[in-house]
Design a protein around this nucleic acid. Sequence first.
DNA 1: AGTTAGTTCAAACAGTTGTTTGAAATTGGA
DNA 2: TCCAATTTCAAACAACTGTTTGAACTAACT
Lengths: 231, 231
Amino acid sequence: MTRPAEYTRQSIMKAAVYLFAEKGFENASVRDIVTKARVNQAAINYHFKGKNGLYLEVLKTAFEKLTKHAGFDPEKLKSLSREEALRSFVSQQLRPLLFRDEMSLYIRMFAWESAHPSKIFLKFMATNTVSYLTAAVDIVRQFLPPGTQKRVALCGAIWLMGQCSVFVRNRELFAQEPFSITTDEPFVDELTGLITRLAIGGLLHASAAALAEHSLHTREVEGSIPSARTI
Amino acid sequence: MTRPAEYTRQSIMKAAVYLFAEKGFENASVRDIVTKARVNQAAINYHFKGKNGLYLEVLKTAFEKLTKHAGFDPEKLKSLSREEALRSFVSQQLRPLLFRDEMSLYIRMFAWESAHPSKIFLKFMATNTVSYLTAAVDIVRQFLPPGTQKRVALCGAIWLMGQCSVFVRNRELFAQEPFSITTDEPFVDELTGLITRLAIGGLLHASAAALAEHSLHTREVEGSIPSARTI
DNA sequence: AGTTAGTTCAAACAGTTGTTTGAAATTGGA
DNA sequence: TCCAATTTCAAACAACTGTTTGAACTAACT
């Protein structure tokens, strides 16, 4: 039994994370990956049982590391006020705008999925309990009334992440003409604050709407509150 | 000179609009299109000089019709208050959730592009002056101070459309488990109101930040206002 | 050294994509 | 009717995708 295989595995993983983050799952080809990893074509199928298998493995480690990372530590988040927790989350989501570290790659990978989820990703989310997403749901839930349905909170979390992912995905695009946005620290700080305030406003509104629904059937004119399905 | 070709052209256009709206540009193949249009493979290249040419043609007519459509008529929008104009715009953006008409297809096509713009789309937007987008920029601009830079308003418009496009793109997904959102009229109405209020809040905040920047250099502690680049 | 399991490799496979080809069919004008 | 431009068509092309193959290599154990 030889174990130089571990080097190949890690090499592939690293290249895959980078390219999935850069282009998204569908647009990163296995040939791209093996070239960057400097390994043979067949290596991906031998070590991961195909591209899907590789992606699943990457997703697993990505969410593991994200969860362990300070920004998403459930303990730390609970010690913060709900507003601070929300801001902390948004700040983490926008991390790829400022830093090019490992965490930023994972977050950007997720940004592609939040635009148009791949089937593999959805399957992964359905089977695994991803505490990364759980953290987001928990934060959102703190702005919603106690009895709020799970899917409402889930939907709110996805919406929240969508707010940030536009900028993360199209980072390079926004840097060019005619936008010419330089994503330096003060800009990202301000963007973080803006999105946080927006989210708080949106969630509290949804909360109020849901409460009104629960209290009495006081549907009157237009602008009435339809149901707790409101995000 | 024969002119039955016009039928083929229209047939291709119709199929293309449907499939581009359904899957986005990259994921709709020419074989999908010619099959749906019941024409020959080579027809697209003969009539439109390739897939890109077809897309350009589709984009052209799409934006033409969208502009002419009541919801984006510059005259009508000017007669409304800025809040009403914004709400009207958001309502139009969410149209594909309720109706499956021509306009909805065009809007959904645009929703794919707002997630991750294709090169052809960007080129089209750069060369043509799309009054559809101009309308959005104009609406956004009414919430921003007079001197606001063009790219700031442009960025705001894109952000605004992004708010809606998540739901439009992933319509089918949200209808399934674990979301199970039935996009009926009351729901879409409420969603419209919610996004409108969120947008107003966000834009007004950006406006205030930009104004403060212009008045005096009163940068003090953290949470200071960086620049007018703020969306 | 010989055996065996693990790992690499170049090549090919089977599928898809957009595009091109050159002949056949169609049509309007002479 | 014949001509010539226009339009259709089946087939093939070239470039890509993910995956499989079977031989070659490597390293540990007997």
